[in-house]
Simulated assay, not measured.
Amino acid sequence: MTGVPASAAGGPAKPNGATASPRGASGQGTAPRGASSRGRDPGGDATAAGVSGAQDGTKPVRGGKIAAAAVDQASVWNIANLLTMLRLVLVPGFVALMLADGGYDPAWRSFAWAAFAIAMITDLFDGHLARTYNLVTDFGKIADPIADKAIMGAALICLSALGDLPWWVTAVILGRELGITLMRFWVIRYGVIPASRGGKLKTLTQGVAVGMYVLALTGWLATLRFWVMAAAVVLTVLTGLDYVRQAIVLRRQGIAERRAALEEQQA
Rank of each mutant, 00 (worst) to 15 (best):
V244P: 10
G127E: 03
V51K: 14
T30P: 04
I157D: 03
F139R: 03
L201W: 11
A35Y: 13
K14T: 11
K59E: 14
G64I: 06
I118L: 14
P32T: 10
P12R: 08
M120P: 12
I142S: 10
W167V: 15
L250S: 08
M229T: 01
V244C: 08
M229C: 02
G64R: 03
T239P: 09
A67T: 08
D105W: 05
G240Q: 04
V210E: 13
R33F: 10
T30L: 12
W167P: 06
L262R: 15
A74E: 03
V208Q: 02
R251V: 00
M1I: 08
T47H: 02
G102A: 05
E263M: 12
A49H: 08
G93S: 13
V91D: 00
D164Q: 13
A209P: 02
F125T: 13
G163F: 10
G103L: 07
L217V: 07
G102E: 07
G179E: 02
M85R: 08
M212Y: 10
T122A: 13
W220V: 09
N78Q: 01
T122E: 08
T30H: 13
R252H: 03
L204I: 14
T47E: 09
P166W: 14
A54S: 11
A117W: 08
L162W: 06
M120N: 14
S196Q: 06
G29P: 03
D72Y: 01
V237W: 06
G3F: 03
R251D: 12
D105R: 03
G17T: 02
G254Y: 11
K59M: 15
R258T: 13
G179V: 01
A67S: 12
K14A: 06
T30N: 10
Q73P: 00
C158G: 03
G50H: 07
E263K: 15
A48M: 10
A147K: 00
N134G: 07
A261G: 02
T84H: 00
T181I: 05
G11I: 06
Y190D: 06
W227P: 07
G93Y: 13
P145I: 04
F125M: 15
L235V: 04
N78L: 00
S75N: 06
A69N: 06
L156Y: 06
E257A: 14
R38C: 04
P42T: 15
L135I: 12
G57Q: 04
